[in-house]
């Protein structure tokens, strides 16, 4: 998007570039839902766990799509990783976010972790530790809306909405209806700051 159209405001405002709009996100989630079902050979024994805050609405949307294909609901929950973060000691104590494990638990099931952006991989490392304290899943898979690279740990996603090559100075922002007022994935930063 040409950032120089309005020099005054563009210099001050974020140089946001939309890379996925609402229908792009919808299509990506539909594909991920089918991939999950294909890989799992159906929806049996699946548990979807979203990582708050934006992983939770994504998990719910995937569950809706799976339900419409398979005809039955799969359990959806949320998994807060705050207390498992490796940078917990470096910042003021953070507020906890909801953890909601579905009634059947996760023992012996295939857990699909759902998050918005996969970046360093540290969040997922924390989530794997958190899962270990809750039960013993048969398998753990990872679904993300955006994979922006720059991994700092040996972790990869099984289901990816969009691979988004970025530079480290850029910021990827995911907004979702329910949490935010719009469905969009945008990239902020880089070219605005005198590239």
């Amino acid at each position: 998007m040409p950032a120089h159209l309005e020099p005054e405001s563009a210099a001050a405002a974020d140089t946001a570039r939309t890379v996925m709009d609402g229908s792009d996100i919808g299509r990506a989630l539909t594909r991920i839902s089918h991939e999950i079902l294909e890989r799992n050979k159906g929806g049996s024994d699946l548990v979807l766990l979203g990582i708050p805050s934006r992983g939770v609405p994504l998990a719910e949307r995937i569950a809706e799509r799976i339900a419409s294909v398979e005809g039955y609901a799969v359990p959806v929950g949320s998994l807060d990783i705050t207390m498992y973060r490796d940078d917990l000691r470096m910042k003021p104590a953070r507020a906890l976010l909801p953890t909601q494990i579905p009634n059947g638990g996760i023992d012996g099931r295939t857990v699909v972790l759902v998050d918005d952006v996969l970046f360093s991989g540290r969040t997922i490392r924390a989530a794997l530790d958190a899962l270990g304290d809750i039960g013993r899943p048969k398998a753990v898979r990872l679904a993300v809306l955006v994979d922006r690279g720059h991994r700092e740990l040996p972790i990869r996603a099984d289901f990816v909405g969009k691979n988004l090559p970025t530079s480290l100075v850029e910021r990827v922002r995911v907004r979702l209806l329910g949490v935010d007022d719009v469905d969009a994935v945008t990239i902020l930063g880089s070219e605005g700051e005198g590239a």
């Binding site: 917990l88 000691r89 003021p92 104590a93 507020a95």
Partner: peptide, 13 residues
Amino acid sequence: LYLLLGGSQPAVS
């Protein structure tokens, strides 16, 4: 205890 000790300083200063 978590809010006092969990981070580098207490929550919501």
